[in-house]
Design a protein around this nucleic acid. Sequence first.
DNA 1: TTAGGGTTAG
Length: 542
Amino acid sequence: MNYTRRIGLRCYSTASPSTSHFNQRITSLKNAPGPTKVDDALQLFDEMLLRQPPPSIFQFTQLISVIVKMKQYSTALILFKQMRLMGIPTDLYVMNISINCHCQLNHVAYGFTLLATIFKQGHPPSLATYTTLIHGLVLADRVFEAVELFKKLLKDKLYDPDQVMYGSVINGLCKVGHTSKALELLRYMESGSCKPDVIEAAKMLIDMEEQGVSPSVATFNILVNSFCKQGSVKDAELAVQAMVRRGLNPDVITYNALIDGYCLRGEIGDAEKVLDGMVKRDIVPNIITYNSLINGYCKKKQIDKARHLFQDIQDKGFIPDVVTYSSMLQGLYDSGNPAAARELFNEMQAKGQTPTVLTYGILFHGMCKNSQTTDALALFHSLGSNELMKDIVLYNILIDGSNKCGKPNLALDLFDELLLKGLKPTVRTYTVMISVYCQGGLFGKANDLLRKMEDNGYLPDSVMYNVIVQELLKKSKCQEAENFLEEMINRGFMPDSTTFTMVLHLIPNVGKESRMRTIIQKLTTVERKDGRILNLTSRLVP
DNA sequence: TTAGGGTTAG
């Protein structure tokens, strides 16, 4: 009996020829760069599935992880299903990876269904299960629920959150702009979450020794990125200093965040300095680093510098991706070179980079701005049944372009077309259409559309109000303009500088009654802390 | 080291 068991164990733990064969192929797949990677993985999966006895669940999971890393989430889920159908058992790893795939596909609900399955099978979920779900909720813009789930886990004290879970929650808080709450959580995390309720002398010593969970580079990167996105690169630099003080080394993602932050502010010189700094510290820039810089140059109208860098990185062996090309396209159109842009667009396709909706958005916008609206429309319609034809943003761009080039009828046609396709107009769509109607003097139609929009559950935003007021003022419809102006202010929107200037010109000299003046005065009058009333436009409005 | 968090373009 003992002997048999020992033999059995031995057979099991020694790798069979086929096992090591699969191990080798999985390892080489992991490091393979090639475009056939997914196909090769699928081929290997089929072979493994047919092998008798089947390879271990460990090998299957390893292989499917390769697919997941390539963001082929639906494929990964299909493979798991095939495994189940072939009777290969499922474990918590498989469940967690599946939950992650559902979350990445924006199906958090399925993720929670799998959580229920884990419970039903009688196994406790792991910390990773919950982290995945929290991250899924954040991805689905359900940050409030993510935070609630996190709080519940803290309260139940079944798990001690780790770096990764804290990171996910901090990421969620940053995403909705609650950077200060995120910082608070970071400090809480460092202080150590579990405070003792009862003190003894010995335990107190242990507690004093006890550290909280230390934030990792990834956690700091979330904060660095968040500060950069909201424009405060100085705070981001402080966060970097804080991470260095804790002995963490900024990585390429940290530097990329800073570079992008400076580029967004148009401070290219500082971005270049960061690049120099990272190279000096032996951190190798990647395509994302260069994309930010190219985008920065384009935004600053330094198209020559952008072109130079574009060429330079290719000489270094980098392959421009769809983001690189899109930025370059934008730069070329903005610098009034539609011919070069079009050439580059053809080049990117020839080199196997597939344009995305964003690329087409840049392309169509650029074409419209360079008096090629008809060409843009032709290209758009040549996309045929492509999914991109169903993107409302592209319609918004093309409708706006048609209107601006003096072809309101094309704009109307496009609007009908998108409704026929069952696409849902956005506030932006309505805004453009309302300005089409207003410019044509069709204020009744504009009003109808506005009402229809509100019936559909959308409220006008600041842009829409400004457009309406400006159009009304252009057509000397002062009474209506005043109504809308009052409404927008009551809803907490401010007139933009164009609207403001137009309104100021219409205010009569002192002495004459003016509703417009009353509105503007109310808007620009603030009560100071000492109770004094201050009018911000006292020099402009008599 | 078979699972979970961080980077780029309208």
